[in-house]
Design a protein around this nucleic acid. Structure first.
Lengths: 230, 230
DNA sequence: TCAAAAGTGTTCTCCCTACACCCATGG
DNA sequence: CCATGGGTGTAGGGAGAACACTTTTGA
């Protein structure tokens, strides 16, 4: 008791932020998990997260977590739900404000090698600590919703990419398959892509055109939103 | 200090739920506000809300608030955002988990007459306490999003209603005007309405057909989601 | 010259949009 | 009988879905 120095008239829950950090390796959508070194759930994988500092908003806390885990300072993050079941943490009452983040895997420091932090393909995730299975499921659902209204890819793909890579990203997120021709038509009609005069070398067969996002148009569309059917 | 008996090793914020409760009077979309009787912001209108009890989830807290303010026990509620700016409450750090609720005005106890709780048309709301202006704006934005993917109306309209009432509801929420014929066509194609053999009497001119929601189909569509263009 | 991947166009259908006339009812 | 509001159908356009052949390039 001697070191419990923050006192209130009424009970206050602890508040954390958890981050569902998505990355894309060209084939699979992946999520970053950390291995818990302490009880409870020691030895289980969990979403990166931590307690909110007194002087920071939840979004600042989420960005701080993101930076600690990946080294990335600025990318897309979005709050999607707050989890408040009284018993979700066995120690004390902990409410968590959950964020999803999209990062370029190439820019992540450390990469895949840390023992206590690892990228898992989205459809091959171990059982997680706490209610993090539910949180991950909800994050994926939110990402799948977003993709119908806002362009996606700028925060997940390398600067230059092929249409095939973009299509593979969409397919990985939605878990479906698209007709190559229709996908290209739709994307090019959105008018957010700039075709480059470059191709990737070497390539096994015929080289594919590289594209970049036209960042002004991309941002405008992200602001305004649109409707994309799949 | 003597009565501050809940102590923690680290600082914990207070956590509240706030409810944006929407109702529809046949013409305008309205929101329920309460007049603050104590400082801070004494005399200002605010969203109904309150501290989360130790043994309840945020959703249970929101439902409890809803019942206290309207007497309604069961209706549609949805968490939409959590507000965590460290200085949003001048007393101490308060994080609020915000919900939106849809209610039938006819079922609300008390009605419009309480001095300290009043329904305001959505486009004529006074300046609110705390950051509640922002919360209300976000709630409305969420409601406008929802309407494109899920049927709406069951929780806002009386049991039996005319197509015109349903259309007026959509127009009030989205703030636009629709062609009468196209709106009817779209709604009837959704196959969630049951046409009744009744009309409302008396009526100024020709009586309009009454409809009910086909609750199974409505729920199914609410689960599955759909795409509605406007 | 063959195999693998990239590039590209047409048809069909569905849904949204715009739009106008007839009908029922009460005054 | 007239004014008000309710009910309904059609024609045109745009976007998505289905679908196949040609081109490039390395092996």
């Amino acid at each position: 008791m001697e070191n419990k120095k923050y006192c209130y008239k009424y009970p206050h829950p602890a508040v954390t932020t958890d981050c569902v950090i998505f990355g894309f390796d060209g084939t699979n959508l992946k999520v970053l998990l950390v291995l818990r070194g302490i009880e409870p759930y020691k030895g289980k994988w969990a979403l990166p997260g931590g307690f909110l500092n007194t002087d920071e908003s939840a979004e600042e806390g989420a960005l701080r977590e993101l930076k600690e885990e990946t080294g990335i300072e600025s990318t897309y993050i979005e709050q999607f739900h707050t989890y408040s079941e009284p018993t979700r943490d066995p120690r004390e009452r902990v409410i968590t404000i959950a964020y999803l983040a999209l990062v370029k895997l190439q820019e992540v420091k450390g990469g895949d090698d840390a023992d206590d932090a690892r990228w898992f393909p989205i459809n091959n995730v171990p059982q997680l600590a706490f209610d993090h299975d539910v949180i991950l499921r909800d994050a994926l659902a939110r990402l799948r919703e977003r993709i119908h209204f806002h362009p996606i890819g700028y925060d997940l793909l390398a600067d230059k990419f092929t249409l095939k890579e973009l299509q593979t990203l969409y397919e990985a997120i939605l878990g479906v398959h698209f007709d190559r021709r229709n996908f290209a038509k739709k994307m090019l009609h959105l008018d957010i892509l700039t075709e480059l005069d470059e191709t990737i070398w070497p390539t096994p067969k015929r080289a594919a055109n590289l594209y970049q996002f036209n960042i002004e148009k991309y941002q405008e569309l992200k602001q305004r939103g649109f409707r994309l059917e799949f």
